[in-house]
């Protein structure tokens, strides 16, 4: 899932300062699951902002809503009439939702979140990055553990010399070394020999965002001829 953080309330108040009528629009997809921008967080944030604005003598009128998925126009469409009446929309979706609303509606669309990473739930309240979306997956070679996302140095021939005595990373103290994990996992799978006998070649980063903005086309799904 896409993991995001809510921006600090001070920053959100600053972003909203010029506006008096705003729709707070959440997204019930990834950011709802990671407790950053779902219906629940819309309610909390709206209440907080109303309180602060009333207190500061500049009240704000907030409409609240949450789209099923803000990255799809069809789910945003029902909010069209409400959006027409606003000065701005504060989107609690990931950056994709903000971009999507901005291309559809002609009023300012403001971000309430900092979109962080593709992550997994570690346990309640903790999420960790496990995929970097590099566009050229090698997880079949590394026992399902991604060194691009989970090694601070993106090593393909790790581990580096900075592994701590307890097997954690020198860069992130509470983060297990991805390469120590990969070696353990491949050993369990009986596939360590393959790792030992081959050097992984330098990565082609052109499929990553280093190759410029990315686009996916599925010809067979295109509606026009």
């Amino acid at each position: 899932m896409i993991v995001a953080d809510q921006k600090p309330i001070e920053e959100i108040l600053e972003i909203l300062a010029p506006y008096k009528r705003v729709l707070f629009l959440g997204c019930q997809s990834c950011v709802a699951v990671c407790m950053a921008g779902g219906e629940k967080e819309v309610g909390l944030l709206a209440a907080a902002v109303r309180l602060a604005r009333a207190k500061s003598g500049a009240p704000i009128e907030i409409a609240e809503g949450a789209a099923k998925r803000q990255c799809d126009d069809e789910f945003n469409e029902p909010f069209g009439p409400v959006i027409q009446q606003q000065e701005a929309v504060l989107s609690l979706a990931c950056g994709v939702g903000v971009n999507k609303l901005a291309e559809r509606f002609a009023i300012p669309i403001l971000p309430a979140l900092n979109t962080r990473f593709f992550g997994k739930v570690e346990r309640q309240g903790i999420w960790k990055e496990v995929c970097a979306g590099c566009g050229d997956c090698i997880l079949h070679l590394t026992g399902g553990i991604c060194p691009i996302a989970r090694c601070a140095k993106n090593l393909l021939n790790g581990p580096c010399g900075g592994v701590r005595a307890d097997g954690t990373c020198e860069v992130k103290r509470d983060w297990p070394c991805a390469w120590v994990q990969i070696i353990q996992r491949l050993e369990e799978l009986g596939q360590l020999e393959r790792l030992l006998s081959t050097r992984m070649a330098a990565k082609d980063w052109s499929s990553d965002r280093h190759g410029g903005p990315r686009r996916r086309v599925r010809e067979d799904m295109l509606l026009e001829a």
Partner: peptide, 8 residues
């Protein structure tokens, strides 16, 4: 903590 940051 949030109230404090909201000026309350």
């Amino acid at each position: 903590n949030l109230l404090e940051r909201l000026g309350i």
